[in-house]
């Protein structure tokens, strides 16, 4: 097993050049997926490109009320940014369900996204929040919606030489609230059997004016269920609206049977978790109990 070349470039352009030069090269952020895959032999990269030392790659930048999160920012650092945690608690909580504290001190949302696991915890929350990411590549930078990155388990839409440099979260809309819930057999150290991210906006009288519902582990990629959002918009999140939302979620779920869960259980949980997440998000949006 040959050891990969190890690069520590100091600019985004150098990262892009190194990745473009070797199709087996892998960017190294937190390494919590990459190193496990390397050590198990599932992945044998010719080179590893550690981009953490590039200025701006680690940390949260505030642009007005919006947030730009460097691709190497560990999940635990998100909690330390009070404004981010207040604006997007669902996203921050989702990122801080991954692995253990030890893992979250290294793991990043960008890595969680680019590992392209359908069960990635932070991704449904990011998709629900309408997050985008900035991709750097041989032809410059482009900004794409987060949900466009994963295309299949373990596969992304990134072209050779491309990597995610930052994740952008918009300003929290007035009356907005978000939440992410997942189902796992254990309380920690587990992979989502199903995950549900919700972001919604309530107007002054509690009517939902917009809603996004995204699901993890019920398909080959994280799914944005537009019908579920529509079922909530215009309602006061009454039981009928929630039931319609849950039904839309179940209809959009197309999970597999595997060691972590069965089709029927995953479908059932998608509905339950989405409903619970809506209620948490609504509370955060200021809904009266």
């Amino acid at each position: 097993m040959p050891s990969p070349a190890f690069h520590v470039p100091d600019s985004v352009e150098d990262v892009v050049a190194l990745l473009a030069a070797d199709p087996t090269a892998r960017p190294l952020g937190g390494g919590t997926d990459l190193i496990v895959q390397m050590r198990s032999g599932r992945l044998v990269p010719g080179s590893v490109v550690d981009f953490k030392r590039i200025a701006g790659m680690t940390g949260v930048r505030h642009e007005g009320d919006a947030f730009v999160i460097g691709a190497a920012t560990p999940c635990t650092a998100l909690k330390a940014d009070a404004a981010l945690a207040a604006a997007w608690p669902g996203v921050v909580e989702a990122a801080n369900l991954i692995g253990s504290v030890q893992v979250r001190n290294r793991a990043t949302m960008a890595g969680n996204l680019c590992n392209a696991s359908p069960a990635a915890d932070s991704v449904p929350a990011l998709v629900a929040a309408g997050a985008t990411c900035v991709v750097a590549g041989p032809s410059g930078k482009r900004e794409v919606p987060v949900q466009d990155i994963p295309v299949a388990p373990g596969k992304t839409s990134l072209a050779p030489g491309e990597f995610v440099v930052e994740i952008c979260l918009p300003a929290k809309p007035a009356g907005g609230g978000d939440a992410y819930l997942r189902s796992t057999p254990r309380t920690e150290m587990d992979i989502a059997v199903v995950g549900a991210g919700v972001s919604l906006v309530l107007d002054a009288d509690g009517t939902c004016t917009s809603a996004r519902v995204a699901l993890g582990a019920v398909g080959p990629t994280v799914v944005l269920v537009e019908e579920a959002g529509k079922a909530l918009v215009g309602t006061k999140l009454d039981d009928d609206a929630l039931a319609a939302m849950s039904q839309a979620v179940q209809a959009a779920s197309n999970p597999i049977d595997d060691k972590r869960g069965s089709v029927s259980y995953r479908k059932a949980m998608a509905g339950v978790l989405a409903r619970r997440a809506v209620l948490v998000a609504a509370t955060r949006a200021g809904a009266k109990a």
């Binding site: 254990r186 309380t187 920690e188 150290m189 587990d190 992979i191 060691k259 972590r260």
Partner: peptide
């Protein structure tokens, strides 16, 4: 222990062989 259809152990690690953690 969870086995795949081809007779191979499918959860040979502490992630998917779920022993209780402190918060459980």
């Amino acid at each position: 222990y969870i086995y795949s259809k081809d007779g191979k152990l499918d959860n040979a690690g502490f992630l998917d062989y779920r022993m209780p953690v402190a918060s459980d």
